[in-house]
């Protein structure tokens, strides 16, 4: 009862933090989904171009271009940012030219990232990114990758080859095949991955408040430093509710996204 009283009194700040929490989660997930789905699709495609020598040459040329871009056009940025920029750039260039190799590397690295405890991962980025919103987003985006990439990859590769073959055989272009056939069929599985990721991120975002990104975790951490049981419980319960609502809501979205022909009823 005292607890409920406590919550009611602080409803204002609670709502503010919920909004901040949701903002952090949604902001991170937008990036995470975009990166993960695109790379999940890319690693299902064959490497391009087919000629290995040509591929190697193109790869080296674009890496050099990347160095140029990172180190000439972003002169005013600190060196660490430039390195990150260049790594991201190299990541996508690599995806285009060496899909099979990169598929294994990406899935392996992502699975390692997943095992690293969140507080440690936030900590690892502090020397490079400092504390605050930006650090939290980078770590959250990294965490969110694996379930989405893995599901996108699994969803697309599990499509009956007869389906994609007949799409091509009927004269659909590669882009049409991806957008009209592969993605819609894989969508339920991709959505399941997004749901897993989001619920996970909703929890980890609470910890991010320790490194200065506003979120619901603030209640717990403030409660700890002030020794207020009410505050800690409020924070814990509220975070739990947030995660459960997110899960429930995305469960609905998942159903809604499943094309009728693929529903099992």
């Amino acid at each position: 009862m005292r607890l409920i009283n406590f919550m009611v009194q602080r409803i204002n700040i609670l709502l503010q933090l919920t909004a901040a929490h949701a903002y952090l989660v949604i902001f991170s997930m937008i990036f995470a989904i975009a990166i993960a789905v695109v790379s999940g699709i890319l690693i299902t495609l064959p490497s391009w171009p087919k000629n290995i020598l040509l591929r190697n040459i193109l790869f080296i040329i674009s890496l050099l271009a990347g160095i140029l871009i990172a180190f000439i056009f972003y002169k005013e940025q600190p060196i660490s940012n430039r390195i990150i920029l260049f790594m991201l750039y190299g990541f996508f260039i690599g995806l285009i030219f060496y899909r099979k190799v990169l598929r294994n590397v990406i899935l392996y690295i992502d699975s390692i990232i997943m095992t690293i405890p969140s507080i440690a991962l936030f900590g690892l980025f502090i020397p490079i990114l400092g504390i605050g919103f930006f650090n939290a987003v980078v770590a959250l985006v990294l965490y969110a990758q694996l379930p989405i990439i893995r599901n996108t990859y699994a969803g697309i590769t599990s499509i009956d080859p007869a389906v994609t073959d007949s799409a091509r055989g009927m004269g659909m272009s590669n882009l049409q095949i991806i957008l009209k056939v592969k993605l819609p069929i894989a969508l339920p599985i991709i959505m399941a991955g997004i749901r897993t990721s989001t619920v996970m991120i909703a929890g980890i975002a609470a910890i991010a408040s320790y490194i200065g990104a506003k979120s619901l975790g603030e209640f717990i951490f403030r409660g700890i430093s002030r020794g207020s049981q009410n505050m800690i419980l409020t924070g814990a319960i509220w975070i739990g509710i947030f995660a459960i609502i997110t899960d429930f809501f995305l469960g609905r979205v998942e159903k809604w996204f499943t094309p009728k022909g693929l529903r099992v009823d």
Partner: peptide, 28 residues
């Protein structure tokens, strides 16, 4: 693409698109 559109291809195992209705499948 032109070549394939002038050719009906019934694939081994049919490969109907599971997310489309029969009408949508036929009208691809």
């Amino acid at each position: 693409v032109e070549l394939r559109r002038n050719m009906g291809y019934v694939i081994q195992g049919t490969g109907l698109f599971p997310h489309w209705t029969i009408a949508e499948n036929i009208s691809v």
